[in-house]
Design a protein around this nucleic acid. Structure first.
Lengths: 167, 167
DNA sequence: ATAAACTTTCAATAATTATTGAAAGTTTAG
DNA sequence: CTAAACTTTCAATAATTATTGAAAGTTTAT
């Protein structure tokens, strides 16, 4: 396998995995492209490499910046804007963990809390609803706490902890 | 908030979270409904509760069974088939972890391995591709190992380990 | 064997989500 | 100031994904 094929394979595989971490295909592909690029890329470069439109590129770059995993680089003397992504995989994991917690887990925890706090009217179905949503709430909270640990510790914490954990 | 409202809120919230663990809305809602039900439900019950068609119910139940989180119950003397879901949240987490690993992480690991193993032709871009995909491979492998640990240990392992980890 | 009770399949359709591209907006150089 | 270089926005459209419902399939009781 040569460079070009390997590159395409990586971008399309990593891109299709976007759904796993909650972003769309174009977003994931742009991030992938930047991740293996040796230098910052301009919008033109990205459009051309991925064969996507200017508008699409612009919108998805913005979202990646909102996620905190892509940053704009201003190159002096250059009119265009250039983009880079976080290159350290653990930093990347930290950003993603933080965003996932904020965007998805936190709102769900709130609803689970509300639902599991309804008045127990003594019926079996109400008791079951309360019991099961409480259990889910606790599980989700534990997972969220772990995610936030990942998001807030220093770079090596994740690997060290996991290694400790699986030993 | 009364039972009915709480139930609907739970089903729709948990259902919309389906994307987080990689299943579609109807699938997630069926699982939610079963999760808080005090008894096994027949297809009719599910169709009516969620206002979805027979075909949709049938297909999604099948997928839930493929995931290993819903099982068919044969009630003696009853012609209909009844369904239940795993009620223990940790068992549920185990099944999901196992399936996610098998369906998504394993194939990605395979591609990352292939890509990071291409011949180093000495160019900077090839070196970067190899370096970065290797780093991702290692991260993904660590995460996968953790997931599989979760999937293979006894019921209490997850909570115990996480508690240990976050202390 | 057959009819009733039930489930599955799948082509058609609906709903949702992503993408385009051109117009509007912004910034900078001269 | 203003024209060129660039980016953003967003309505229209395309692509994808989910859902329906009726026909085909299966099982069971008699």
């Amino acid at each position: 396998m040569e460079y070009k094929e390997a590159k395409e394979k990586f971008i399309s595989t990593w891109g299709s995995l976007g759904s796993l971490w909650g972003i769309n295909k174009a977003m994931a592909q742009i991030q992938s492209l930047l991740f293996i690029s040796t230098k910052p890329l301009a919008m033109e470069d990205i459009m051309e490499a991925l064969k996507i439109s200017r508008g699409n590129t612009s919108m998805n770059l913005r979202q990646l910046m909102d996620w905190g995993i892509v940053t704009k680089e201003i190159i002096p003397g250059q009119r265009k804007e250039y983009f880079t992504t976080e290159k350290n995989v653990e930093e990347l994991a930290r950003h993603i963990a933080k965003e996932r917690s904020r965007r998805e887990i936190k709102p769900v925890l709130k609803v689970l809390k509300e639902v599991s706090s309804i008045k127990d009217d003594g019926t079996a179905k109400t008791k079951e609803l309360i019991k099961q949503t409480k259990a889910l709430h606790d599980l989700a909270e534990t997972a969220d706490t772990m995610l936030n640990r990942i998001a807030n510790q220093d770079q090596n914490w994740l690997t060290k902890s996991i290694l400790k954990l699986i030993k």
